[in-house]
Simulated scan of single mutants.
Amino acid sequence: MRKLAIMAWQPEVITGDHLGRWCVVKYDHDHYPGIITKVEDGNIEVNCLHKKGINKYYWPSPRKDISWYDDSQVLCLTEEPNAVNKRYLQLSPATWRLIEEQM
């Protein structure tokens, strides 16, 4: 279980040090991995992947899905998702288990 805490964790506050890091945000009772692009006053801007099934995500095209979220919507920071093929990505099994427990 110690390895899980290192791979994915929920910070108390997101700061400028987290720019460029991968995270998973909660929105409308679902979760979306993405990259933190801006941090301002307890809010973060995230470039999110779209969901395509169980633990399967893709980058939307032609327009990016960039939105602002409250710090409290961050489920965890995580590593970059793994490529399933040329189009789809998935979170590591450890991160996926952590997210399922929180949802």
Rank of each mutant, 00 (worst) to 15 (best):
Q102K: 14
V46N: 01
A83F: 08
C76L: 11
I66M: 00
L98V: 12
W59C: 00
N55C: 05
Y88F: 15
W68L: 08
R87N: 12
T95I: 05
S67D: 03
D70S: 14
E80I: 11
I66D: 00
S72R: 13
N55A: 03
L91S: 04
L77K: 04
Q73R: 07
C48I: 02
N82S: 15
T78D: 06
C48R: 14
S61T: 12
W68Y: 08
D71M: 07
A94H: 05
K52T: 09
H50C: 09
A94N: 02
N55Y: 03
L89G: 01
L75C: 12
S61I: 11
N85E: 10
P93F: 02
L77N: 06
N82G: 05
L98K: 13
E101P: 00
P60Y: 03
D70N: 14
V74H: 03
R87Y: 14
C48K: 08
N82H: 11
K51G: 09
Y58H: 12
Q90I: 07
L91Y: 09
E80Y: 06
S67L: 15
C76W: 12
G53Y: 13
L98P: 02
V84K: 10
N47S: 08
K51D: 02
Y88N: 11
P62L: 00
N55R: 06
E101Q: 14
S61G: 07
V74Y: 08
P60S: 06
D71K: 11
P62N: 01
N85T: 09
R97W: 08
D70M: 04
L89M: 15
I54K: 14
S61L: 10
P93D: 07
Y69G: 03
K51H: 09
A94Y: 05
I66S: 00
P62I: 05
N47G: 02
D70V: 03
L77I: 15
L75S: 10
E101L: 05
L75N: 06
K56P: 02
N85C: 08
R97D: 13
V74C: 14
S67A: 12
K56M: 12
S92Y: 08
Y88L: 04
T95Q: 03
W59K: 11
A83W: 13
K86S: 14
C76E: 04
K56D: 01
Q90F: 00
Y69F: 15
I99E: 04
N47R: 02
Q102C: 07
R63E: 12
V74L: 13
L49I: 07
